[in-house]
Amino acid sequence: MTVRSAAGIVAPARRERLNPLTLLAAAGSTAVMTTAAASWALSLAVAAACLGLSVAGGTARRLLPAAAAVLVPLGLSLLVLHGLFFPEGRTVLAEWGPARITAEGLGFAVQRILLLAAVVLALLVFSFSVSVPDLVAALSAKGVQGRFAFVLASTLTLLPAIAARAERIRQAQESRGLVVSRRLLSRAAAFRLQAVPLVLSLVEDAATRATALESRGFSAAGPRTSYREVADSRTQRILRIVLVLAAVAAIVVRVVPAGAGA
């Protein structure tokens, strides 16, 4: 699942007009403000808006499975946890032994799930619609360490490649007679037979890559020239500042009274 979505992320996205940093600021401040507002109506609206955006942007087919993989177990866990056991709850709807279904518990769980769904969807809409090369170029143009951009881009491109290599190693070991049975010991042995060659070859590869990068001035100081132009405009720059300020204001408004009250 993760691997497939990574392959999707690396594929160039369709929308090229917006600067990736504007998208990032929008997603981040949406997430922060939704958390700060903590109202189920806003959470629901944000989640619906994100779904609408991803359908409009054509990323819904890849985004929905990824979001479901995150949200379904989380939601189930929260429902069981707070729905059945919420000692603070007063309104008891049903009771079996130690488990009590309380209205407060259910409300707490549903509210939390809606909030998390809104935040997760907002951030996923960003990561599934942004083009990683553009993001990397925009980050370097802003003076962010080229090294961070390297780690981000390299991970996202390596993920499918390494997953494919792990698969090849598994096939090779199976063709040599590796049979994974149900017993724990046999599974551990199978894990070792696949992990050791994988890690070995990856560390060796990294050594080669380090030499290649070093010989091209990877650690050298000084400005770099980027061949990739990322669209940006005055409006977007102002928009980004406004978004960041709004997010900071939301945090301050929410945290300061709580801190003073405690």
Partner: peptide, 23 residues
């Protein structure tokens, strides 16, 4: 920390991130 790491360590970081996920 990131700027102080030698390139040999830095190229291992993406590999480690992928290992976290794949393994």
């Amino acid at each position: 920390v990131l700027p102080t790491l030698p390139a040999s360590t830095l190229v291992l970081i993406p590999v480690a991130l992928v290992l976290n996920i794949v393994l």
